[in-house]
């Protein structure tokens, strides 16, 4: 057990020394503070921060994550020559990547909101924080997978950015096209299901249901709103997010455990 702690101590320290991590937190703190100064409304600031986070957290997690892990090959080589099991090194690396990112982002978002006391709906803030932290964990896991499975660093970074484009933008475009193609069918359910399969959209919908989306979406929205406010709904959403972390992480582990260093 103390092996994982030793490794964590080093990987976390390494992560917390990173300029990217601090930059992320500082950016969001600044953005939040500016929004509150210009608009003043806690709810509005939260929504804008949501949009920003949904775009940036996955992107930064992917690119910084992939780049950091390609760099870490040296550390990995050093550690794997020691009497340390691979899974300990794996977990230490993942934690050292994802946790500082998630923490820096969460602090950056929460700080201006809490400091100015502008939060009217603490549950919404909590939802936003959960969403962002989940995204940091999910996309760090995907970055891990990419960097272990793809040998070439440039190709790996390209793949990372490509997957961001696909999930952050392409997915929604595809959903839109599908809804036009299949316009004759009752689509609200399938479209919603498609969106929930994308972690970014899932995070977004969970937060938005607390704002305006539920009532605007008609009958389906009302049902979904009730669903996600109930315990079953929250549990299922949590499960979906967990799956989105577990699957890429599992694939990353498979690649890592077999990899030659």
């Amino acid at each position: 057990m103390s092996q994982i702690l030793t490794i964590l101590r080093h990987t976390l320290r390494d992560g917390l020394r990173s300029r990217v991590v601090y930059g992320l937190g500082a950016f969001f703190a600044l953005a939040g503070w500016m929004m509150l100064r210009l608009g003043g409304d806690g709810g509005k600031a939260l929504l804008s921060l949501l949009s920003l986070s949904l775009a940036l957290v996955p992107l930064v997690s992917l690119t910084y994550g992939a780049s950091h892990l390609y760099q870490a090959r040296r550390f990995i080589g050093l550690m794997l020559a020691q009497p340390v099991p691979r899974h300990t090194v794996f977990l230490g690396l993942y934690a050292g990547l994802s946790l500082p990112l998630a923490l820096a982002w969460a602090v950056g978002v929460a700080l201006p909101l809490l400091a100015t006391g502008a939060v009217q709906d603490p549950q919404a803030l909590l939802l936003l924080l959960t969403a962002g932290v989940s995204l940091a964990l999910i996309f760090s896991a995907i970055a891990f997978w990419v960097s272990m499975a793809v040998e070439n660093r440039l190709k790996g970074l390209g793949l990372a950015i490509g997957s961001w484009l696909a999930l952050a933008i392409g997915w929604d475009g595809m959903v839109l096209m599908l809804s036009y193609q299949l316009a004759d069918y009752p689509l609200e359910g399938p479209v919603l299901a498609l969106c929930l399969a994308n972690p970014i959209d899932l995070a977004r919908i969970l937060v938005l249901l607390r704002f305006d989306l539920g009532a605007m979406m008609g009958y389906t929205g009302a049902v979904f709103r009730l669903f996600f406010q109930g315990n079953l709904g929250i549990a299922l959403a949590g499960l979906a997010l967990l799956l989105w972390v577990a699957l890429p992480l599992g694939m990353a582990w498979r690649a890592f455990s077999r990899k030659d260093f």
């Binding site: 949009s51 929604d172 839109l176 316009a183 479209v191 959209d201 979406m217």
Partner: peptide, 20 residues
């Protein structure tokens, strides 16, 4: 406009694609 046509698309609200 899109939502007037295809109301299920409302679920994409505030997404990056829609903002773009």
């Amino acid at each position: 406009h899109v939502v007037e046509d295809q109301s299920p698309a409302l679920v994409l609200l505030r997404g990056l694609f829609v903002d773009l």
